[in-house]
Design a protein around this nucleic acid. Structure first.
Lengths: 213, 213
DNA sequence: CTGAAAACTTGGGGTGATCGCAAAATTGCA
DNA sequence: TGCAATTTTGCGATCACCCCAAGTTTTCAG
């Protein structure tokens, strides 16, 4: 039951437009493709495109929904006795070890990164996604620790955790663009994660331990 | 010898346009002011504005030249026996303690921040400035330590150092916008710097010690 | 099954940033 | 003073994005 034909059609249309757009972007780059072209290729009007997507960049990042709260989710789901930072490290290691496409370890990810790299608008959108991730992590830490609004620690720890995340993603992006194989990069990033953990202080590594007062 | 009248006039024109623009931005916000208005107010053509500034945002951030390599300069100028991170902490403490306008501790800085906050294009430019800072720091660390291109440490440490810098600036911005007095914020940020230092690992605090092998 | 309300799409008409070009005004210097 | 280099400007165009009013389609009550 539930959603009527209307809802379904909307979802389909939206998905279709996004797919068509992404295809064009991967083929010719972000800036070389005009919204009018996308509309034409998707057989809708330009206005319809803007009905679904607030900005051109959203056509590209549509599939990355759910990424912005992944870190926060990992933290909220940390094991008993585990800190926020260690949970994130563990989950990251898991994804990297599994050569998961969720962290960009997949054939063809380099095309994606190259498009982003060449378009300032897309890079800028990426930064804003990271800002969102940071805010979500800080909010999660605040809730999990019950810290007050004037306590600077949740924000600081969030910064550290996001630094871990960023370092991993920047490296994966760079190596993939350099043409390396996912399995190779996986091994390398696993080593990087050890370096990263080494650079975290005990304070960070033991913040928000589940079960601790 | 030296620069002719032509050079001087160019400099003046550029400065004048930037000043006029900044005035309008502070008065009415970034997006509410059109480039055509700026041109009219500065009594030049729109094309002339674009001759001097590649984009509208550059009109706003023109005065912040030299900020992008400040961290790197601090690092290169660290004392004998001092690490990169400690040099940055020391310099930051100095600026904050001196209630220096260079770190935003000045009357009226809140207007500046508010304009930035309200304009996505400006925020995005800020991120790109931080990216530059990061790259400069990483480059400085690489040179100072003689680390190879495949060594991930300079990048990681640069991330940590920039995290320090960012945390300080975000806090100053937030508190200034909240209407606090520079002297108050100074005291508070000094305390924050202690918290920050506490969160840095020994590895980070002892990276690139001048004089060490 | 039917007609009106609700939701979606479209066309048309802007605004504003930004670029390229070629003419026109300025300035440096012989 | 007059030519050559440099700037400034006007004009036209592209493209993202917005707003509104006029279709169209879907929903749903009756």
């Amino acid at each position: 039951m539930a959603e009527g034909l209307r809802e379904r059609k909307k979802r389909q249309t939206r998905q279709y437009i996004s797919d068509v757009a992404t295809g064009l972007f991967l083929e010719r780059g972000f800036e070389a493709v005009t919204v009018a072209e996308i509309a034409a290729a998707a057989d809708v009007s330009v206005n319809t495109v803007y009905n679904y997507f607030p900005a051109k960049e959203d056509l590209f990042f549509d599939r990355s929904a759910g990424v912005t709260d992944r870190l926060a989710r990992w933290i909220r789901g940390r094991d008993a006795g585990e800190s926020a930072a260690r949970a994130v490290l563990r989950e990251l290691r898991g994804e990297v070890e599994a050569v998961s496409p969720r962290v960009g370890l997949m054939e063809g990810y380099d095309r994606f990164m190259r498009v982003i790299h060449a378009a300032p608008a897309l890079r800028s959108r990426l930064w804003s996604l990271q800002q969102e991730i940071h805010d979500n992590v800080a909010a999660a830490l605040r809730e999990e620790t019950g810290a007050g609004a004037e306590d600077p620690l949740p924000d600081l720890i969030a910064g550290q955790v996001c630094w871990v995340h960023e370092a991993v993603f920047v490296t994966i992006g760079r190596e993939m663009v350099a043409g390396r194989k996912p399995a190779e990069v996986s091994r390398e990033v696993l080593a990087l994660l050890d370096d990263i953990e080494d650079l975290l202080s005990e304070k960070v590594l033991n913040y928000a331990v589940r079960g601790a007062l």
